[in-house]
Computed example of a mutant assay.
Amino acid sequence: MAEITTRQTGAAVIWYDAALVPGFAPDLFDPAWLKQTGRLTGTSTGRNTAWFLRYEGREMVLRHYWRGGMVGRIVKDLYLREPVDRSRAMREFTLLDWMHGQGLPVPRPVAARFSPFGPWYRADLLMERIPDTRPLADCLAEGPLSDRDWMRIGAVIARFHKAGVHHSDLNCRNILLDGAGGIWLIDFDKCERRPQGGWAQENIRRLERSLIKEKGKVPGLHWTDRDWQALLVGYRVISAPPDIKYDA
């Protein structure tokens, strides 16, 4: 578990892992400062921008929390103020830290910031960057995965479910594959630990819906019913009692 240090900078409250970054600089949350000092190494311009940076020899990702849906068109990044430890970034930091300590394949959290603004607050999260990774959707746009790969994806999801981790937005862009064959889950905003229940199957159905949607947008997407069945086999092998076996 992280050695969490709390720091106050103006009205903002920062949590950071002192073991990872003993010389933590609050300006790490400022993309303009990162660019000016040569620490910014790139950006990701998906639905919301993320900034890639290098600091004290570590590759990291900075993410600002943005509102989605209809509300996000009016109030882009303000959330109703709440206790610091219940705020968006701090909750995700805490969950990531716990999952990392359990050996689950997630980014390691570095720091989180709570910035109050009257009755509102803004939030930011800084994580270690997982090297040489691509979203599952991008991989499928280029070529098919093997049955073994799909089974491994299913097995990784099952590990999270057995640990009681509910991923509120499990989709084909929040699953990453790395160059060494590793599989990672990302984006745990609004996620939580839960007692075992029907939510796990709904998680799986949500992923299936995202793959169907992606195939509708990318007609040549390399995803078939056989692939999905292989994923389910891998999921069941991990989630089922040890005396039950499934054939591929």
Score class of each variant (00 low, 15 high):
residue 171 N to E: 00
residue 178 D to E: 07
residue 213 K to F: 14
residue 186 I to M: 00
residue 191 C to I: 09
residue 171 N to V: 01
residue 188 F to Q: 01
residue 192 E to S: 14
residue 184 W to I: 11
residue 194 R to D: 02
residue 187 D to C: 05
residue 194 R to Q: 07
residue 195 P to R: 00
residue 185 L to A: 01
residue 212 I to F: 13
residue 204 I to K: 01
residue 211 L to A: 12
residue 213 K to Y: 11
residue 196 Q to S: 15
residue 193 R to F: 06
residue 204 I to F: 02
residue 183 I to D: 05
residue 177 L to R: 08
residue 171 N to W: 02
residue 182 G to P: 05
residue 207 L to R: 01
residue 212 I to H: 14
residue 191 C to T: 10
residue 179 G to Y: 10
residue 216 G to H: 14
residue 190 K to L: 08
residue 203 N to M: 01
residue 194 R to S: 04
residue 184 W to E: 02
residue 190 K to Q: 07
residue 202 E to M: 13
residue 216 G to M: 13
residue 178 D to N: 09
residue 193 R to N: 01
residue 213 K to Q: 14
residue 199 W to I: 12
residue 212 I to Y: 13
residue 213 K to T: 14
residue 173 R to A: 04
residue 182 G to A: 05
residue 200 A to C: 13
residue 210 S to K: 05
residue 182 G to E: 03
residue 192 E to V: 11
residue 176 L to M: 06
residue 210 S to L: 05
residue 196 Q to E: 15
residue 174 N to G: 01
residue 208 E to F: 15
residue 171 N to G: 01
residue 194 R to G: 07
residue 186 I to S: 00
residue 191 C to D: 02
residue 204 I to L: 01
residue 196 Q to D: 15
residue 213 K to C: 12
residue 195 P to K: 00
residue 212 I to T: 14
residue 209 R to H: 06
residue 186 I to T: 07
residue 174 N to C: 03
residue 190 K to W: 09
residue 177 L to N: 03
residue 211 L to G: 12
residue 183 I to W: 08
residue 174 N to W: 05
residue 211 L to R: 13
residue 173 R to L: 07
residue 173 R to I: 09
residue 183 I to F: 10
residue 180 A to V: 11
residue 216 G to F: 14
residue 186 I to Y: 08
residue 175 I to C: 06
residue 182 G to D: 00
residue 178 D to T: 09
residue 181 G to R: 09
residue 193 R to Q: 02
residue 187 D to H: 08
residue 215 K to A: 15
residue 175 I to Y: 06
residue 194 R to P: 08
residue 178 D to F: 09
residue 197 G to W: 12
residue 211 L to I: 14
residue 195 P to G: 02
residue 205 R to K: 12
residue 188 F to M: 02
residue 183 I to H: 08
residue 205 R to Q: 10
residue 180 A to H: 13
residue 201 Q to K: 14
residue 185 L to C: 03
residue 215 K to C: 14
residue 201 Q to D: 12
residue 176 L to Y: 07
residue 185 L to W: 07
residue 181 G to V: 08
residue 171 N to I: 06
residue 217 K to I: 15
residue 201 Q to N: 13
residue 182 G to K: 04
residue 211 L to D: 06
residue 172 C to P: 11
residue 172 C to K: 04
residue 215 K to E: 13
residue 199 W to C: 08
residue 176 L to I: 07
residue 175 I to A: 05
residue 214 E to P: 13
residue 207 L to M: 03
residue 178 D to M: 08
residue 181 G to Y: 08
residue 209 R to A: 01
residue 183 I to K: 07
residue 195 P to M: 00
residue 189 D to S: 10
residue 189 D to P: 10
residue 181 G to W: 11
residue 192 E to R: 12
residue 203 N to C: 00
